[in-house]
Simulated assay, not measured.
Amino acid sequence: MQLPKSVLIDDIEYKVEEVSNKELQLTAEDLKGDYWGDTRYKKASIRICEGMAEDEAKITLVHEIIHAILQERGFDRQNNDEAMVDGLAHALRMLVKQNPELIREVMS
């Protein structure tokens, strides 16, 4: 998947980059096990693990974008709820994928 170079969230440009899984884990000591992305709010960056399957990369990007939106909107408690963020990411992706006409209409 070709990731965008950046994404604009509430007038803040978040840089998007692919990094190794090892690099992701080095900067997130509080997380254990494998994970596929992270969002660095002070640096305004989203990092996605390189070499993932296309569908996994897409859902991970949406997941991290939701984290950034929640952070920028001040929803700190909800932002820490990984199950909620993941559920929203999957639901939002399916909404857009299954309803392209609705999305075009809402965005026009």
Rank of each mutant, 00 (worst) to 15 (best):
S6K: 03
E72M: 09
G74R: 02
L102K: 06
A91R: 10
D34Q: 11
G87D: 05
E54L: 06
H63L: 13
E105Y: 05
K97N: 10
P100K: 00
G37Y: 11
Q2I: 04
M1S: 11
K22E: 13
Q78A: 15
K58I: 15
E64H: 05
L24E: 02
P100F: 02
E82I: 02
D30T: 05
D10N: 12
V106L: 15
W36E: 10
E29F: 13
H63W: 09
D76F: 11
G51H: 07
Y35I: 07
C49S: 14
Y41Q: 09
K43Q: 14
C49P: 00
N99K: 02
A28W: 08
Y35T: 06
Y14V: 04
D81R: 10
D55R: 15
M52T: 12
D11C: 02
A44M: 07
Q78C: 13
I9Q: 01
T27K: 09
T60R: 12
D11T: 01
L3W: 04
L3P: 00
S20I: 06
E101I: 11
K32R: 10
I59H: 06
L24W: 11
D30L: 06
I66S: 05
L61E: 04
H67V: 06
K22Y: 12
K32E: 14
C49D: 13
T27P: 03
E72F: 03
A28T: 14
K32M: 09
L26V: 08
Y14N: 03
C49N: 12
E50Q: 14
V62N: 05
E56V: 04
I9V: 15
D55I: 14
G87C: 04
M94R: 04
E72N: 15
D34H: 08
N21W: 06
Y41H: 14
E64K: 07
C49T: 11
K97G: 00
V85N: 05
V106R: 05
M84R: 03
V16E: 00
T39F: 01
K43V: 03
Y14F: 15
V16G: 07
Y14P: 00
N79R: 13
D11H: 02
V85K: 02
E18T: 07
M1E: 09
L8R: 01
S6F: 10
I48Y: 08
Q2E: 11
E23G: 10
P100C: 03
N21T: 08
E54K: 01
K58T: 14
D10P: 00
R77C: 04
V7N: 03
V7I: 15
S45Y: 01
I48D: 11
K43W: 04
M52L: 15
L102C: 07
F75Y: 15
E56A: 13
M94C: 03
W36Y: 15
